[in-house]
Amino acid sequence: MSIITVSHLGKDYRQIRRIDGRFGAVRTLFTRQSMTRTAVDDISFSIEPGEAVGYIGPNGAGKSTTIKMLTGILVPTRGAVEVLGVEPHRHRRRNASRIGVVFGQRSQLWWDLPVIESFELHRHVYDIPPERYRAMRDRCTELLGLGDLLQSPVRQLSLGQRMRCELAMALLHQPEILFLDEPTIGLDIEAKDRIRDFLRTVNREQGTTIILTTHDLADIEEICPRIIVINRGGLIYDGAIQSLKAQLGSQRQVTIDFEDDPGPITISQATLLSDQGRRKTFAVERSVESTLAVLSSIASSHPVQDVSFAEPAIEDVIRTLYAGLGKAVPESDELDRWSRGRVVTQ
């Protein structure tokens, strides 16, 4: 039974059309013309309990719009959303009591008060039994190293400290689903690590379903086995991060240091990426056979000093995907959804 089901979801925003030219501002004021901008278009996916899913896409792709519809604060224009068995926007408050939400760019803590005051109020708003509240508060305090922070006014906290507190608060009522909209934005490495560790632990130990949007792909690699990629409002990939790499990152880089500059080299199975004289870098098909074939063919004609390989980074894979090259990737039917991934052409 899926915990989240989204089918053919779409959201349009209406904008009043601006009129340029003479008296443009005045005419804009009186015009009834409006433009429709589609932020999310025909997106479908489902998420099972306990999954950790990265929801990614370039700026303006429709990530936040989707999250808002899933949390019940935005009404879809088309299609259907079901979260924990209900339509979130029709049962906003019921939905709200069972989910946790963290907006990386907004604070849910009371700015002028010590953190603990926000936690206490949260306990009332979500009607958390006192013993469970204390247990959860102490657990989060320990895992996130909050300690003394709870007594500090929020305005005195650093961004990293504040985000840790935001996360803890979102989990106090033990939500079944945790929505995170760019939770690591603007944080330093240490704070990011701490938050990633924490989210992994929460996902693994409590089985909390996690939906995460981010631009930092390390978040995804460390927390989410599955990713959903959207672009211009439409879904372009849904599946395991590993199989995306396998599909799109089909080439590896081979860097060869020669004894002497061999001059230009042309090999049919390899593409020259960079040429620094004695050091040349080629892109080669990822299979062992083709790598060996390239190497032996080069080594037979030129003395080689050293060889190194680089696997495609997830950034490169995603960049390829964003660039629209994903269209060419074939779909494999044999593998299950977890490792297969679904590439949808736009």
């Binding site: 949390t71 604060i73 906003r92 408050r93 709200a96 009591s97 989910i99 907004r106 849910q108």
Partner: peptide
Amino acid sequence: GGDIAVDLVKPMH
């Protein structure tokens, strides 16, 4: 400012 989102994800009227 859009901060109303934070108010609306709470189970309160």
